[in-house]
Amino acid sequence: MGLWGFVARRLALSVVVLAMVSVGTFSLAHALPGDPLSSVISERQANNPEVRAAFEKRWGFDRPLPVQYLYYVRNLLRGDLGESIAKRRPVSDELKQRVPATIELTLFAMGFAVLVGVPLGIVSAVRHDRWPDHLARFLTLIGTSVPVFWLGLLLLYVFFYRLQWLPGPGRLDVGMRPPATITGMVTLDALLARDWDVLGTALKRLVLPAIVLGAYAMGIVARMLRSSLLSALGDDYVRTARAKGLVERRVVAGHALRNALIPTVTVLGLTVASLLAGAVLTETIFSWPGVGSFAVDAALKLDYPGLLGVTLVVAVVYVLVNLLVDIVYGILDPRIRAA
């Protein structure tokens, strides 16, 4: 099978996966006990059959479930994700505002994961079984095993409350207005607008949530890199490089690391998608106005359109990343395309 055929097949499969996700989420959300209208209409209105009927009509609850789903899909194909019951505004507006905030946080979390995880992985492998390795493994163990909410509260307690070195929850200082929206990512918009005050504040406010969100990915990156680098350092081509008299730094950086990074990069790509979904706790702790905190509100209020919108966004990201990884693998290894 040619490359384009392979890509087309993967794309078609992605569409099927997304359709299944939408059916699954829609069915599960509606199977939950509880009345979504209970959170939006008063008791007085709930007891008035006419008013209740009007609200049910507004959110489409007056139709049979399969019909509701078909309407949902029809609207979805038109780019209409419906109106959030909890927020009383279009889900697409809510997501338009929140997705960039989550992407920004995720990118900085990934930056932290790479900037800390890669050196830790290298040190750990190069100083195998010595104290830098033990220290690095201890740090990665903390990153992968400490619960996000605990780490978030601890960092806030130490660096915001006690030391006051870093700001607390929120995306910008109180009363500070973000620059005109271009990308929706405050740091990037501030950079484009050359608003250095806002940029500095936004960067400072990203430090703690990015560390909290990126801690797990940092641990994974460091452990994966350590393992693959250790394996690479024992390979014949590394022995050959050493035999040629290359200094150790060049052997590691120029030969072993290149090969060891391939599986790490793959894992990193997949971690991006899981970070988007994992932002729920971090965003809640840091009052970050992203998709995660919207998902929490939507779930608590049985906001079906909101829940479906968030699930769809996360599913699309997962599918796209997987698609990208599959395609890259297909390019790197033609045997996979034939499978």
Partner: peptide, 9 residues
């Protein structure tokens, strides 16, 4: 009014 949801924060 600034958005901080958690009472401890």
């Amino acid at each position: 009014w600034t958005n901080i949801a958690d009472a401890n924060s």
